[in-house]
Design a protein around this nucleic acid. Sequence first.
DNA 1: TATTTTTGTGCAATCGTTTGTATTTTTGTT
DNA 2: AACAAAAATACAAACGATTGCACAAAAATA
Lengths: 333, 333
Amino acid sequence: MKKVTINDIAKKLGVTPSTISRALADNKRVSQATRDKVKRMAHEMGYQPNLMASSLRKGKSDLIGMIVPRINRHFFSNIISGVEEILNPAGYSLLIMQSHEELESEIKAVHSLMRNRVGGIIISLSVETNRYEHLQGVVDANVPLVQFDRVCKDLKGPKIVNDNVTGAYLATKYLLQSGYKRIAHFSGNKMINVYGERIIGYKKAIAEELGEVDESLILEDIITRDSGLETIQKVLKEKEIDAVFCAGDYSAFGVFEGLKELEVEFPGKFGLVGFGNEPFAEMLHPSLSSIEQDGREIGRIAAQEMIDAINGDLHNIERVVPVEFKERESSKR
Amino acid sequence: MKKVTINDIAKKLGVTPSTISRALADNKRVSQATRDKVKRMAHEMGYQPNLMASSLRKGKSDLIGMIVPRINRHFFSNIISGVEEILNPAGYSLLIMQSHEELESEIKAVHSLMRNRVGGIIISLSVETNRYEHLQGVVDANVPLVQFDRVCKDLKGPKIVNDNVTGAYLATKYLLQSGYKRIAHFSGNKMINVYGERIIGYKKAIAEELGEVDESLILEDIITRDSGLETIQKVLKEKEIDAVFCAGDYSAFGVFEGLKELEVEFPGKFGLVGFGNEPFAEMLHPSLSSIEQDGREIGRIAAQEMIDAINGDLHNIERVVPVEFKERESSKR
DNA sequence: TATTTTTGTGCAATCGTTTGTATTTTTGTT
DNA sequence: AACAAAAATACAAACGATTGCACAAAAATA
């Protein structure tokens, strides 16, 4: 019932633990004969190396920490899958924590990961995060820090982000080309890179096509379904608009509901585009045009950057992952 | 830049590491005065205990392994959240792995977790899993094993499952009470507990209401959207049915699409109920009636059972979590 | 004051590996 | 056959914490 150790194997075979250790690591300093013998015996005894002991001695761990706002968001779980796809075959395991979009939780998670001596941390910041000491601490401790999606440019290390500008640009452009002219943009907190960048893309398309941007059509802090619903109801009374580009699919769904409720004819009289391409986007009726972000790819790149960093070359770069406009019914005329 | 250890603090304070260790653990064997002094200094120096060293010495780890088929399924990510909700405050961290519904991956994941010397494993079996040596090994190694959702009754330890029988019973009953009479059931592999149980619930309702069960209306291995779509198209040509109860929302969505394509009037001429209450269920038009499973609660219970098991009382029981019928349009008349 | 108790610390071994430095054994050379 | 070189293995000290036991100092008791 007791776990078998390297010493047990050593005793059984009449050699020293060091030989066992080297044999299992395929070290050429031990003869092929003993290597085989040891491996066979190890297998027979059901030996499983104790990675804690190993990590402790080697001073490096095969655990990689990952912090996401919420695990149950399609985008993030796809990223996790992408990360695992690269990390697991390379012999690493993922220690996953959620910040629940709270700075305090994020800080706790970072500390917890550091106590567990993870080999690195992959993180997407919470919406609340406006201080960065906890992450600077990670960098200072020489633990590779890879950021993705919601990132802080002031922290050194690799950052993997969507091409938010282009995504927003495309979304807006399609609405314009469908003939919609007064397009509002429901955004998040613009201090956060992803929302700031989407605003830039939106403005670029509007400026190109209409010349002037009406800043009053850019509304912040509307990313939930409920706020999308409330806002569209209010806005339709106050302003003359004929389309909305939402910085997220959930708020777009809120708008969707609002339009149905108010019996606005859409598409046709009104256009709508979301961002994120959640699974439900294509299931709606009319189906929701959206910007697809390749979560898996972001995850793969993040993982690869992590492995590089662990192996000594930490790239201080921002890698931009392309997005794709999914044209569906809601943005047509 | 080097990590600060207990020894560094000891040197700084002119005491021994053992005193530091005890002070930090609030051991009454060290005076309150030194305890305070040590803690202050530890904090000042930014000390973070090395949990690997600690676990190695104590022979128990604060890492709990978790294996799910896929992380990006709403149901599973909710469960993970529930588990974290209990485990994190209790000082444990989650090492999450995906089996991707493959037995081989599941086995690898189990071994990986065992090598990492997790304090326990929480698992939902892959659809492929029909051998259990890898899990029996966990039990034999005295590592607490908590199963949920898709479980194997032959393995000792706590099992947390949905009330699948009641859920399926309710779903079918509602269809019957809406006046549908020839109700097919699209199920999964009936050897898997969840599907087997749903079949039982379905049969029970049918038997109660109609007396006799037509076994030919129970179709297996239809859990994906694509198979749901294909199957409904085929079945509508061959059989006289006026409703379907699907063992999952994805296959239900396939049916949904098929009905639209074939221009079947539903609800009205045809009824449909899913299982799982995925977020998209209420977004569809007509909205999809479904069985809601409380993932968070399952997670919480699993976590609590794990903590109990770690603390020495492993319950060899099956805990059944209630489900709820979400009545929406698709099952009406 | 001498002696027992209590209280606070130190010593050293331990958890299971890894790895630099011996040491032994084997092989090869002259 | 003697000896150097190479190959295989052993020894022992880490990694950073925990903990039983020994010991000293302080407090309490006789």
